[in-house]
Design a protein around this nucleic acid. Sequence first.
DNA 1: TTTACTGCAAAGGGTTTGCATGAGG
DNA 2: CCTCATGCAAACCCTTTGCAGTAAA
Lengths: 149, 149
Amino acid sequence: MLPMERNLESINILRRAGLRSTPQRLAIVREVFSRHHPTVAEVYDALRREFPTIGLATVYNTLRTMTEKGLVHELPFVNATRFEVNLTPHANLVCTRCGEIEDSEVFEDGFLNEMRQRASAAAGFEPEGQRIDIYGLCRSCAEQTANKL
Amino acid sequence: MLPMERNLESINILRRAGLRSTPQRLAIVREVFSRHHPTVAEVYDALRREFPTIGLATVYNTLRTMTEKGLVHELPFVNATRFEVNLTPHANLVCTRCGEIEDSEVFEDGFLNEMRQRASAAAGFEPEGQRIDIYGLCRSCAEQTANKL
DNA sequence: TTTACTGCAAAGGGTTTGCATGAGG
DNA sequence: CCTCATGCAAACCCTTTGCAGTAAA
């Protein structure tokens, strides 16, 4: 995507959510959606080069607002709160060694629906969304571990 | 389970993990395993009647140690860090209205294994464990909502 | 007797809030 | 113009750490 297109898209994202398009917000939106599971600190650090005076509170406030508007989902981890940008149903493959988080789209064929239906049938629960983390070793960490044996 | 049996079980749990059995720890273990997804604050508040001088740091330290020894799992939520006591594979049904968290054992027949295998096949990932939260309305909140329509 | 645990207080880190200034619609 | 967003600083949790006293093994 060209920078200009991305900028227009960011404006539309904000407008649809009923938010004003300030230069800081456009940059935050661009930065958040160009990353996989960013933290506030990561977004803040990335933007300080472009906006040396940007406040950490601005990033916090904007991400809270974006969460309230449903643009992203909050994803609390043990060491940091991350933000889920990919709102299509998927699992997060979380490497317990290097910390990498990879999206896994394993639900193409109604797999997720079956899980929801089971939960629903068993407990009278009405599912709206889900968080699925699979913890283990990513490919490269698994290979490194195997080589040491 | 009778109180005496529970006490003996708590001692064994601590011993197997290589931890000393102090009166405070026995009470923490009892309290943690008698709850579903306790927070540090909930355990602390429950124990202050029995141990008026117990320190909040003691509860924090003990739960951190228990996590390191694999007795419980840390489960960060947006508003609080909870602890997973049920280490058998299951989903947490999290009510977005009242906050209730219910365990759902929907994986009796290898459902979970299939999910793991898909992740593994697609990404070369070696799964070790998982966290599955399903967000929505619990039975009673769903019924209340339906009645208002 | 040695080592680990407790409890208190202080420090630390992440997140929110209050307020004056400034910019968007 | 009026409202909302920014940036700074202070306040606010929640959690960890340091340390002296104490109890477990």
